[in-house]
Design a protein around this nucleic acid. Structure first.
Lengths: 219, 219
DNA sequence: TGTAAGTCGACTGTTTACAGTCTGTTCTAG
DNA sequence: CTAGAACAGACTGTAAACAGTCGACTTACA
């Protein structure tokens, strides 16, 4: 876990709290901090080289993102997801991304959006032989972009609040299973559906993508 | 704003942070802290009679709920919603509640859920002549229950994260306009749709309810 | 020996005080 | 009148400390 301090020494632009947040998020979704692991404030603050106060602000945020769960007397531990929870997370994710797809379908001028989406898929394609982590990263970027392009800030925000849980699901289900869902074709299919402007088709395509993704993970 | 301290003196079970959170949430969604209002940490901590550290933890959470927006150098102010944002919030809300309705439709044994929902509508009905605040409260309770009954914790959590924004939308649009959406019949209609088990119908009913609610608010 | 009481240590919740930094404002010297 | 210094307000981050609580361990007693 020594790697935890490293990310903080770099980019000084963000506040310490945000740096700690990123470092912890990464540590959790990468499995460095295993599910169920108990977190001790004084330990973490020492590891991250920040004060307890600042750390606690970050912890509250992670708690709300669903990466940490609170036990008795406020004791935090890394959340553990069971299969039902993974399915539930993907159900919510599907609902959000369906809305995104539907919204994009109704966009009169969606050529630019289509292009942006294809670009993120190009990145995915280029990362075919890269590490699992990089492939997952490019996949997340596609879906995040899908939400961002709608221009609905609330939608993007809700999706991002779920992002940590999604990443945990993938990690919990196994990265190998996770990347199975990241076929380039499936994603092009989604973009095509949006391109047609058929909201119903787009919704169905997204839902199918998510259902199979969740099914793969818990299989 | 003197009322801010009062809620803290009551129920001592929760931590100071949670008490502050509730107090601030109420102050914001009730309009006591007006949109755009700049918040000063030392002022608030003095008003709420808690330390800055504890306050900051609460503020982080409100920020993530979308009730506060951060300006340059971390200066927080009460978020101001324009009409597009209200529509966006209700679009996301519709997506979440559609999922809830669909999930309940697929529940083999949904008699109990149906009953619970009717009960919350009974409360709404009884509150017909109560204050606007109470009527809104009973409406929120119905929709929250809708999400809770699915047993999907992530869905409930996402909805609750949005709850503050929803309340702000109603406040911003005007309470009078807000209660227009709370007809008992419309809600019974939603429950009936779920009772039939027709997921598509349920989804359509929810969506129509939300669309008209959003339209009323920004009208 | 078994159990009940007492002790100790580990953590969290919360407060206070303080240092550093940024920014806008005000006051003064030229 | 204006450039620049001095200042006040506000946020970020830190360190140290204390109370309360709960589990674990120890001890004393029947």
């Amino acid at each position: 876990m020594a790697g935890l301090t490293a990310p903080l020494l770099g980019l000084q632009k963000k506040s310490l709290r945000e740096q700690a947040l990123s470092a912890l998020r990464t540590a959790i979704t990468s499995g460095e901090l295993a599910p169920g692991r108990h977190l001790v404030e004084t330990e973490l603050s020492e590891m991250l080289q920040i004060s307890r106060g600042t750390l606690r602000e970050a912890l509250r945020q992670l708690e709300q993102e669903g990466l940490l769960s609170a036990g008795p007397r406020g004791r935090l531990s890394v959340r553990h997801l069971d299969e039902k929870e993974i399915r539930d997370i993907f159900a919510v994710r599907a609902a959000l991304e369906s809305l995104a797809a539907r919204t994009l379908c109704e966009l009169p001028d969606r050529a630019h959006a289509i292009e942006s989406l294809h670009k993120t898929i190009d990145v995915m394609e280029a990362a075919q032989d890269a590490s699992l982590e990089e492939r997952i990263e490019s996949d997340m970027e596609f879906h995040r972009t899908l939400c961002r392009l709608t221009g609905n800030e609330t939608l993007l925000h809700s999706w991002q609040s779920l992002e940590g849980s999604i990443r945990m699901s993938i990690m919990f289900g196994g990265l190998e299973k996770g990347v199975k869902n990241m076929s380039v074709d499936r994603h092009r299919e989604i973009v095509s559906a949006i391109e047609t402007g058929d909201a119903s088709l787009a919704r169905t395509t997204i839902r199918a993508h998510m259902d199979s993704a969740a099914a793969n993970l818990v299989a």
